[in-house]
């Protein structure tokens, strides 16, 4: 995947707006993987994620004339993909319901009152272990959908807070707050895992 600079993006955008499909593809190709990752985290099923990707890119192609270039093209695609994903999830109502359910245990708001142990110097190496990776995977999967979307855009697809705010049409402050909340929930889940693993209690950094 290559990242286009602003100038190259603007030039391709001009061509794409005149109906040049090759230019559109050149503009869009670098976003396929990030959009797929986002769609997979939203939909949790590969076939639905693929549908969301296809529908999002075709929608972008259809609406390219309306894109004003106020955000990066990749940001705009993320916005379309989130909308397509949410629309599809609404059709799968039972899943939406379970995804909006409280996170296991409902203790995520109590972080400030927990005694926090450092995960330990081995934590980062431990992620290589499939067990720790599974804990993180399931913690991410259990995040409420609005928080999960932000973590994926920010920490997986490496978009800036401003780009996330543009993609979700949220105030910057709301993005920052939700990102913080999401990371805190993930941290608490990982903390439980590492605390259990190391059998260490009450030690603060």
């Amino acid at each position: 995947m290559t990242t286009l600079d602003m100038e190259a993006e603007a030039a391709l955008l001009d061509r794409a707006k005149t109906g040049d499909r090759e230019a559109f593809w050149e503009l869009a190709a670098g976003s396929v993987d990030p959009i797929y990752r986002l769609a997979l985290r939203l939909m949790k099923r590969e076939e639905d994620a693929e549908d969301v990707v296809q529908e999002s890119f075709l929608k972008a192609l259809d609406k390219i004339g309306e894109f004003q270039g106020k955000s990066r093209f990749n940001t705009w695609l993320h916005r379309i993909a989130v909308n397509q994903g949410l629309m599809k999830l609404r059709k799968r109502r039972s899943d939406v319901f379970s995804m909006d359910a409280p996170v296991g245990g409902g203790e995520e708001g109590d972080a400030h009152f927990m005694e926090l142990a450092d995960f330990g110097s081995s934590a980062l190496e431990d992620l290589e272990s499939s067990e720790a990776a599974t804990v993180l995977e399931s913690a991410l999967e259990e995040l409420p959908i609005d928080l999960r979307t932000i973590v994926v855009m920010r920490d997986v697809n490496r978009m800036s807070n401003d780009e996330v705010a543009q993609a979700l049409e949220l105030p910057l402050g709301a993005v920052k707050w939700r990102l913080h909340r999401a990371r805190t929930i993930l941290r608490d889940r990982l903390g439980e895992y590492f605390a259990e693993r190391v059998c260490r209690t009450g030690e603060t950094g």
């Binding site: 396929v32 993987d33 797929y36 990752r37 997979l40 693929e50 990707v53 934590a123 980062l124 992620l127 720790a132 990776a133 993180l136 995977e137 991410l140 973590v151 920490d155 997986v156 490496r158 990371r183 993930l186 990982l190």
Partner: peptide, 10 residues
């Protein structure tokens, strides 16, 4: 840890 997760590709 989140940033080091294995990322799937299309």
């Amino acid at each position: 840890l989140v940033r080091r997760m294995k990322n799937c590709c299309a």
